[in-house]
Amino acid sequence: MRSEHTDKKYEEDLKRLRDHILQMGGLVEDQIQKAVNSLVQRDSPLAEAIIERDHEVNHLDVEIDDLCIRLLALHQPAGKDLRFITTALKITTDLERIGDMAVNICERALELNWEPQLKPYIDIPRMAGISQRMIHESLDAFVREDTELALKVCKDDQEVDDLNSQVFRETVSYMIEDPHTINRAMKVGFVSKYLERIADHATNIAEMVVFMVKGKSIRHIKEIPQSI
């Protein structure tokens, strides 16, 4: 009776961990989307609201950490569960960083909103869309243990990198043309860099998922394998 209770509690805790990770993912996705909206639509109150909401992400980060440590201490899981919990521990760090990036974007948006718009934003919303999708898919891969999807996320990173260098070239050309734009162009470049970092974090998550499922590390290698 007692052991059954413990097992049930353990199962529930694992489920809660999974839910929390997804919740955190959903939250940072929303943060990114709104952050980029605040930039594109020059909506300063929205940006401030997002900076305000970052504490929710941080709170979830702490909560997930606690949950993982409790699971490890109380149940001494082995095998798949152990890999799942340790991966979850690492994923939260990445998600928390992504949340910070969203805050950074908002800060740049607030600064940019004080000045006239440098250029219409076309690539930045696209980058945001792709990185958001990457976070979504990497977490989907995490909960479904889908390595195919995880590998797709790793491959999608290239697209964001390309867009980033495109934005970089563009902002540099603005700066060369007119030194007055340097301040704004730099900030736009920062935003692009933040998004690129977000995509990198999503890639990290995807790589950890591959490790979790297959026990095979695909980190720090040049060519992403076609399949595992």
Binding site: R18, D19, L22, G25, G26, E56, L139, V143
Partner: peptide
């Protein structure tokens, strides 16, 4: 599956 797997939008949560 948990509802979070259907939609993890914070509003839905």
């Amino acid at each position: 599956a948990s509802f979070m797997e259907v939609s993890r939008h914070p509003e839905m949560k």
